[in-house]
Amino acid sequence: MSLPKTSLWDIVKKQFRFKLKSYRGMFTSLMMLQIIGILFSLGGEGGGGGGSDSFSYEMKYYSGSFILAFLMIWAFLSAIIVTTQAYRFDDYAFVANRMSSNLANILFLGWASIIGGVTFLLASQSLKLSVLILQEQDYIVSQRLSMLQMAEGLVGIILYLFLFTALGYLVGMLVQRNKIFIILLPALLFGSLFISVFFANESTLLIDVGRIFVKETSFLLFLLKVLFASTVAFGSAIFLSDNLEVRK
């Protein structure tokens, strides 16, 4: 009598399918955050005005930036939630190891990023429709997206979300490894922000790191940067997860 051999990839696929079903609630939070983002955006994201004796102007700008900001937070927090003990213990329903569990999580987060990116594109277009209908002003201008811009932008958003899930996953694993990171990481984040506010001209590490991605105008280089950073973050998280305590 012999036991059937199962490959790592088969286990990962099974776990991924399981996670698609059991983590459906993640998409509810995505939906809610997008709706909140749309509602926030309806108030306008910026504007200005001015004038003289004979002339005055008021400008109001709209875009999907609020929705995107909410999505990034969603991606980051969702990845952290996936690393929590309760979710890791779900994987014990399968004959699996930490590697397969991590790979299935990465696949799921990648899938969630794609869903997030596509729904963002749709949500931002819905916001545009609301703006066009709700506003009754002299001039309503809408910048049209070319197909190339739409395609590059969509992949760009998915990559940003994937990067945030990678960061969230690493942060989650760090916290699981040692609870001191619950205090240490926010302290580093807010400390860095306070430094940049107090010393307005001083650049901080956090902002500089962000610029590496945000200022990149070459799509290929941006893709490589995100994939490299995500690989490093997920790789570190996998390494950290090997040292986590086992289920008793």
């Binding site: 004979s54 005055s56 875009s63 002003q137 997206l145 590059e152 932008g153 958003i157």
Partner: peptide
């Protein structure tokens, strides 16, 4: 006559312009 211009603009969100 006083001229008042009220402009509403829907701009592309950031990632759509990043690779322009």
């Amino acid at each position: 006559d006083h001229v008042n211009i009220q402009l509403v603009k829907y701009t592309k969100a950031f990632p759509f312009t990043q690779f322009a």
